[in-house]
Design a protein around this nucleic acid. Sequence first.
DNA 1: GTGAAAGCGCTAACAC
DNA 2: GTGTTAGCGCTTTCAC
Lengths: 338, 338
Amino acid sequence: MAHAVTIKDIAKILNVSVSTVSRALRDTHDVNKETKERILALAAELNYKPNFNATGLAQGSTHNIGVVLPFITNYYFSTVITGIQEVAYDNNYNIILYITNDSPERELSIIRNLSLSSLDGLLVSVSSNSDSCGHFQEIINEGTPVVFIDRVARNIDTSKIMQDDYNGAFEAVEHLIEQGYSKIAHIAGPKGLDFTEKRLNGYLDALKKHNISTREEWIIYSGFSQECGETDTIHLLKGEQRPDAIFAVNDRKAIGAMLALKKKHIAIGREMGVIGFTDDPICELISPSLTTIAEPAFDIGRTGCELLLKHISKKYFHPHEVILPGKLIARESTMRSY
Amino acid sequence: MAHAVTIKDIAKILNVSVSTVSRALRDTHDVNKETKERILALAAELNYKPNFNATGLAQGSTHNIGVVLPFITNYYFSTVITGIQEVAYDNNYNIILYITNDSPERELSIIRNLSLSSLDGLLVSVSSNSDSCGHFQEIINEGTPVVFIDRVARNIDTSKIMQDDYNGAFEAVEHLIEQGYSKIAHIAGPKGLDFTEKRLNGYLDALKKHNISTREEWIIYSGFSQECGETDTIHLLKGEQRPDAIFAVNDRKAIGAMLALKKKHIAIGREMGVIGFTDDPICELISPSLTTIAEPAFDIGRTGCELLLKHISKKYFHPHEVILPGKLIARESTMRSY
DNA sequence: GTGAAAGCGCTAACAC
DNA sequence: GTGTTAGCGCTTTCAC
């Protein structure tokens, strides 16, 4: 194992003290311009890399940030983490990944076992059903900054990055109206979830703005899965009044809706518009392609990481709440001419 | 910022020396059973957690393993990393993620800038087109263990985890034959890629075993995208002899093939069987659902990480090559009765 | 079986 | 502007 070059080596070769080398390398204090250049040159030549364990020990900081996510095997979270990684890498930070499998118990055990001394900060998206968030507050109290992304803990006073669910839904429904649909149903998520309600409100307000009425039975609450989307749609088709468009709370349910419509030989687009939410790559793969509201997953990761780094570097950085807009991606499933 | 409890604190309280505490905690050397118990009890009570920076500095090891992947926003790699994470977490290792965006330049720059002193080992899946792998050899030479997963660097003597492309393809084609298809085409990847060729050979050998002939124009080399799958299929349909089944090198291309068949109103399953490779979740979402060979993504991650940990703990652990089998998932796209 | 002390690589007072 | 020194939390000889 080749001995890694240290500042001591550089100091010896250049006949200066280690502190001078340290100062030159970090560009702190005044160092004679010429000796500084010599040091920098030699460091580059020897391919010197600082030992993070040592810097960490000496100044109580590591270059690690923890990232706690429910899972990463879907489009949304894997994109979020890619955004985080980009910022972290550019700033010479490592990301340490923890996956909770969306289980509150595992989340708790991860947080409890966290070695805070090896973490400068934490980026977290809480598990669903994680009702108590005391464990996060504890960490913050102990001095480790935490930034929430996407799934935030309401009651904790720290920075949060979310997407604009309300306006995304509003825009989705307005798009349907513009395309000439007027009997618009909403297959929603379960009642009582924050972002589900925001999307519902966006739906209601868009209809209101355009003086379009809805019907109670056109709003169906159920789970997030494709099967739910299918069942909900069958239910809608059986109703007294059949809608001519469906706004689904996410792409999965929209796809379920499309499958149900296909089985009933109802022409998607022409007879019944369908719009989703997320912009999973699958939207483009299916036929007809699915109109949706693209969530700013990558930017959520990036912004979250940038904010966390500010919390880390500035001791008294004030918490920010950032809401990022989504973007309508119009495709075939809402084209009347399709 | 609450002061984290250190072995010094424990030592002071219990009136023993720090070395005794250290020894007790790590279960090394002989420590009086009773004092050891007292130490362990107090450590648990105070919620003592070792400072990885300090242990790392002292014994030249960190608890970090680097993971270098081309991207993580697809099903395969996000599942691989979930597997890695699980093993790492169970063994008290952190994973530090690097994403190359499948760019050889970025890969090189990441590897060159790696602070090896903060990494105990490296798990890597090389970028495509990354022809020179000297940078990995350098790292190994400097004493950091490297394990390759999925996309391996052929010429480097270290552990490698791959999936069984040959037998997966063989099984896929044999499945088609069992279902009664006999004119089987293969839409392959680009020529010259390792795993593409293995899948091609599996295809050829399965046909040979069953004394079924193929035709030169039934084997088409092109890219991995859905569009390529579509184009290839249109090409096949125009040919002199129309095949009655298509084995696609991956699910993406299989989906492209299905889209092309739908446009031509050819019944998938009954008139033309289609089989893919990977088992992307989309296989279940589309209609008809897509038969495929499931790649053992999770196990690849897990096994890779386990192997790396062995390399880290045992100085002279001999390199292993592990080939994990895939699994046939029969769905509608290869049902003649569908 | 246990303690004292040196040292891992680096930073930060403090002197000069 | 630069060197000396102590110390971050832990492990590890080396004594006893």
